[in-house]
Design a protein around this nucleic acid. Structure first.
Lengths: 154, 154
DNA sequence: CGTATTTAGATGACGTGTCAACATCTCTGA
DNA sequence: TCAGAGATGTTGACACGTCATCTAAATACG
């Protein structure tokens, strides 16, 4: 192995930008979500696909696929949200291994109240700060990064 | 309050790209770091500024400022790393409230071994996948996002 | 059919991150 | 000088995420 090739200034600047946005933007959005509507980012993430599903019910497996989470992460989060009354677990008729996750009335009320504020925050702090050309380029470049990333089992 | 203005396709694509990169790129880098050199991302984050500091010592306050972490986060992480033998706490002479964090020999060995592999991974999965123009634009755009983000106390 | 493999989900242990509370120490200004 | 304000750090409670492990059910395949 030869000399390590460190990041040049151009690379370091993009990398610092990503790390900074990743940490601070996430923190700001999470905080606004919690303070304004009392939902955590993890709760919001699961409530969105549930609220869009017919009947407000999804199988745990499908819920995980929709949000890109692994099984145990979904299971733990559903357990926490069940305690908070946002969702309820039910048995799965078609597959006895399965577990259905149902949005409760309280869960639906929460997500309906939270979504507009969250979208506004995303616009205020991120997409609204970028030009159309920047949005396109970020979309293109990041999709390419994701395509080349090795898959992590699931 | 009027109708909610949702994200258009261009905005949603950039936003999905950021979320995806944030989750999957971070997961891949973290996993490679742990598997190749046995360091977590949090450990790596603190070891870098410590290894660059004269004498391998920094005051906890300054360490936190360098990495952008709040006090309790630094304290908890230093506690865990102290148990692993990567750092050691010492009293601060100048300010009796303070706490100095010193890199141990084991800590220095770890970071020296880890850095080249980590930089290579960042290049392989992120900066190496972007063109020079994309790197510049991401750097510019994300710095602007960060500049406009409200400060979160510290 | 029956066994091996795969899939679904739950769970406990542990590392991580935030918040609130607390104890100390330093600084500031009347 | 000294009381109040601010800074520094630690701690405990709790939410979050990953890993390894376990159980059970579905599926594949000889």
């Amino acid at each position: 192995m030869g000399e390590t090739r460190w990041l040049d200034e151009r690379e370091a600047r993009a990398w610092r930008g990503l790390i900074g946005v990743q940490q601070r933007l996430t923190a700001v959005l999470e905080r606004e979500l919690v303070q304004d509507v009392g939902l955590s980012g993890a709760e919001y993430t699961l409530l969105v696909p549930l609220s869009e599903a017919p009947g407000g019910v999804l199988r745990a497996r499908d819920l995980g696929r929709l949000v890109g989470w692994e099984r145990s992460r979904v299971s733990h989060q559903v357990t926490r949200m069940e305690k908070r009354g946002l969702v309820a677990r039910e048995e799965c008729g078609e597959d006895a291994r399965g577990s259905m996750v149902r949005l409760t009335d309280a869960g639906r009320t929460s997500i309906v109240a939270a979504a507009p504020a969250h979208v506004a925050a995303v616009r205020r702090h991120f997409v609204g700060v970028l030009t159309a050309a920047e949005l396109d380029l970020v979309g293109t470049a990041f999709e390419r990064v994701l395509d080349r990333l090795p898959d992590i089992d699931g």
